[in-house]
């Protein structure tokens, strides 16, 4: 059964009009993409910066309004919903942001931050906040409740962000490069935590990343995005071992390997004039 079904999703951003120019020009940030995620699976959306992967993530949680296309979550299309009608659906879908230094309000305590989605849904319960903190490995929860983000380390902050996303039991989570700002020795811990939580909460996840190695580690399937379009999708291991599209091949050959003996054929896209 698919949890998420995207059909012909498109987002255009209008460009500033030139003086006296009549026709409006657009940037095709997301250009007619379609994909599905089955319940309990993690799909990795991989691409370089500016390829439209973050725009896609924001469309799915409806921080942005799609220009056209459909977003079915659990069978319901949310693409056209108005702001007022979104509140109910916000309970089902949450997002984890890239930069834990930026995604937590510096003036709110950890307690207030995690309480926010609960208060918005009218479900406030201190017990739940305790549980959420424990689940993400911030123990004992009492020790964290009344601290401020700046008193925590990067890894702890990202755990708080994960706790906030999970505290209202969403069914679908969008994670936008959740570990790219973290130090390597911390990163593995957060990745493992997300894998464990996926299992225990039976979450469906869209994992946005630029790092193919991380995508391979985290995801069941991979979709490669380039210039607003999805150029290749498939089983993660399959895409990494046997890429079909030339862009995927170029991307793979550019990934540095933590092994000095790995001599690989390198394919370059020399499209841009250098």
């Amino acid at each position: 059964m698919e949890m998420l079904n995207i059909e012909h999703l498109t987002k255009l951003f209008p460009l500033k009009k030139k003086l006296f120019s009549r026709d409006q020009q657009y940037v095709h940030a997301v250009d007619d993409i379609s994909f599905k995620i089955e319940k309990g699976k993690i799909l990795g959306l991989v691409g370089e910066s500016g390829c439209g992967k973050t725009t896609t993530a924001k469309l799915l949680v409806r921080l942005l309004k799609p220009t056209s296309g459909k977003i079915y979550i659990g069978g319901e299309d949310i693409a056209g919903l108005k702001e007022e009608n979104l509140k109910k659906f916000r309970k089902n879908i949450q997002m984890i942001f890239q930069d834990p230094y930026e995604s937590l309000n510096p003036r709110l305590t950890i307690h207030s931050t995690i309480a926010e989605p609960l208060i918005a849904q009218g479900l406030y319960n201190l017990e739940k906040i305790h549980d959420a903190l424990e689940v993400v490995g911030l123990k004992p929860p009492e020790g964290f409740l009344y601290r401020y983000p700046h008193e925590l380390s990067g890894g702890q902050r990202q755990r708080v962000a994960i706790a906030r996303a999970l505290v209202i039991d969403p069914i679908f989570v969008v994670a936008d490069e959740p570990t790219s700002m973290l130090d390597v020795s911390i990163r593995a811990g957060v990745l493992n935590l997300m894998l464990a939580l996926r299992k225990s909460f039976d979450l469906t996840v869209l994992f946005v990343t630029h790092d193919l190695a991380v995508a391979r580690y985290m995801c069941d399937d991979i979709a490669v995005m380039h210039n607003g379009k999805i150029v290749e999708t498939g089983n993660a291991e399959e895409v990494i071992r046997n890429p079909k599209h030339s862009y995927t091949k170029a991307l793979l050959s550019a990934v540095p390997i933590p092994d000095p003996r790995a001599k690989r054929e390198r394919i370059r896209i020399r499209g841009k004039v250098v």
Partner: peptide, 26 residues
């Protein structure tokens, strides 16, 4: 445009509360 405002919106926080709780103190 800061992520902490976006994340509050994703959490389902209403506009008035975002202005009072998140924007005003900053």
């Amino acid at each position: 445009e800061r992520p902490f405002i976006e994340s509050a919106r994703v959490s389902g926080v209403g506009n008035t509360r975002i202005i009072v709780k998140h924007l005003a103190p900053n």
